Simulated assay, not measured.
Amino acid sequence: MKVIKLDAIDSTNDFLKGLSATEELENYTVVTAENQTKGRGQMGAVWESEKSKNLIMSVFVKDLAIKLDDIYQLNVATALAVVQVLKTYDIEDLSIKWPNDIMSDKFKLAGILIENSFKSNGTISSVIGIGLNVNQTNFEYLPKASSMAVIANSLFDKEALVYQITERLEHNYKLLVLNSQILWDEYLKLLFKKNVPMPFVVGEDKPFMGIIRGVTQRGKLMVLLEDDILAEYDLKEIKMLY
Rank of each mutant, 00 (worst) to 15 (best):
V85P: 04
L86E: 08
T88W: 05
T88M: 05
I91Y: 02
E92N: 07
E92L: 04
S95R: 02
S95H: 11
S95Y: 09
S95K: 06
I96F: 04
I96S: 00
P99L: 10
P99K: 09
P99R: 08
D101L: 14
I102A: 05
D105H: 14
D105F: 13
K106F: 01
K106P: 00
K106M: 01
F107S: 10
F107P: 00
A110I: 11
G111A: 09
I114V: 08
E115K: 14
F118L: 15
F118A: 01
S120D: 14
N121G: 11
N121Y: 07
N121A: 08
G122T: 10
T123I: 11
T123M: 05
I124E: 02
V127M: 07
V127K: 13
I128W: 07
I128E: 09
I128K: 12
I128N: 10
I130R: 13
L132A: 09
N133V: 08
N133H: 07
V134Y: 01
N135D: 05
F139S: 11
F139G: 06
E140I: 03
Y141V: 02
Y141L: 03
L142M: 12
L142G: 04
L142F: 12
P143M: 06
P143I: 02
K144L: 07
A145P: 05
A145W: 09
A145Y: 10
S146E: 04
S146D: 08
M148T: 10
A149V: 03
A149P: 03
V150K: 15
I151R: 12
I151F: 02
A152V: 01
A152D: 06
N153Q: 15
N153V: 07
S154G: 02
L155T: 15
L155N: 12
L155W: 00
F156R: 03
F156Y: 07
D157F: 06
D157V: 02
D157Q: 07
D157E: 13
E159D: 15
E159Y: 06
A160D: 12
V162W: 09
Y163S: 13
Y163L: 09
Q164V: 02
I165M: 14
T166H: 00
E167M: 08
R168W: 00
R168D: 02
L169E: 04
L169R: 05
L169F: 15
E170Y: 07
E170V: 09
E170C: 09
H171G: 00
Y173P: 10
K174P: 03
L175E: 14
L176V: 04
L176P: 10
L178H: 10
L178M: 03
L178F: 12
N179K: 13
N179Q: 14
S180A: 08
S180M: 06
Q181Y: 04
Q181I: 08
L183V: 08
W184T: 02
D185F: 07
E186T: 11
E186G: 00
Y187S: 11
Y187D: 11
L188S: 01
K189R: 12
K189F: 07
K189A: 10
K189Q: 15
